[in-house]
Design a protein around this nucleic acid. Sequence first.
DNA 1: CACATTAAGATTGTCGACAATCTGGAGTCG
DNA 2: CGACTCCAGATTGTCGACAATCTTAATGTG
Lengths: 227, 227
Amino acid sequence: MALEDVQVESVEAGQSLADRLFVTLRGEIVEGLIPAGSKISEPELARRFNASRGSLREAVMRLESLGLLERRVNVGARVVDLTERGLLELYDVREALEGMACRLAATERTGEDLDALREMLARHEQQEELQAGRAYFQPEGDFDFHFRIVQASNNDLLIDTLCNRLYYRVRMYRYQLGMASPRAKSAFREHSNIIDAIEAGDGELAEILMRRHIRASRLNIEKKLTQ
Amino acid sequence: MALEDVQVESVEAGQSLADRLFVTLRGEIVEGLIPAGSKISEPELARRFNASRGSLREAVMRLESLGLLERRVNVGARVVDLTERGLLELYDVREALEGMACRLAATERTGEDLDALREMLARHEQQEELQAGRAYFQPEGDFDFHFRIVQASNNDLLIDTLCNRLYYRVRMYRYQLGMASPRAKSAFREHSNIIDAIEAGDGELAEILMRRHIRASRLNIEKKLTQ
DNA sequence: CACATTAAGATTGTCGACAATCTGGAGTCG
DNA sequence: CGACTCCAGATTGTCGACAATCTTAATGTG
């Protein structure tokens, strides 16, 4: 798939070379084109992109701060390993942060936020009917849902933490461990209930529902892992 | 002042020059020696530390990923502004994450964790008795408390997010807006109750208590700001 | 006098090169 | 045969220089 090309070209001009390298590499790591656990060779990648090592280094450092790479002094960078423990840790952090995002969204959301959420939900319902029971393509649909809720929280720190820092790790696990939960039907209903609570301005309920929703996914994963 | 030299030399060997620059600059930004909102001049700082601009650039980029600097392409980096809104956003994120850390600490804590928490609490109690009601055992004492709870959560992602990413921002606000809450007495009791819940293994209660504790600080700040 | 234009200066982005350090394997010794 | 030493190769950390871009202040024009 040419997703990385899309991403590269979708970057408007006025971005630095290091920015584009960062976005490209981020995509390849998330999708596994650069395998988890593999070593990052600065000279090799610099040659591949016809860039200097310095620009590529800047991209590598940003990937490190995203938590997608681990660097050791005088040794170099490696793509992080995907572990069961890391996946479960991610769920706990998301439960806390997205729960709070939901609570805030219930009081801070604007009319446009609600319209967008409703429109998105309708689109997902349509998809679900078409695919009748088959995991309505969670990866993007679920991603959209959580992404937009967070946006409606109106807390820039929360938005940055979830959307710019944690979600690439989430996507990396989804792509490579293929943990799209087969909970399509129930997940859709949960999404719907969450949006109802947000619309009603009930932050407490919205938070509880979101936390249950994420915890249910986590339990589902745990069950798969232990069997 | 030779503060930067002290900090630089206190870093053990085997660290890169960029690492040391990063630690030094981080300290100066947190303490306000480099004022909030001020521009970062790469050539000037490079001269000041007798380092190349490249090494200093690496430190600047890490500070950006910490959220202490904001960079714009072809313009440069500025220290973030301290705003009331930013402070309140920080409290909401901390409430969510430290609440979860508390919940996890209650089930994941080891015997050493509990010993360390108890020992720390006893030390704080002693300080409090000495200072009898006066506020400022908080800045470091409170920091210690929250820091150690997070460590006991045994969730590396949570630990990294709070201790390596958010706490420098917390400290920056504390140093420069001086928001050490005058809640010493009640805060100490709350700390004590939280540790009790962790010791009892009651994650649900521990989370609730920590969230209330942080929310009380937030309300206290809000009251100060609006008056 | 206000506003647009332009040129000078400085700053950032990018690059290639050198020195310090690590990695892996050949060789040697117990 | 296993463990240690040491060397060659490659990689990373650091540096200074050049080109592209922005900022600022002076200049010109309505």
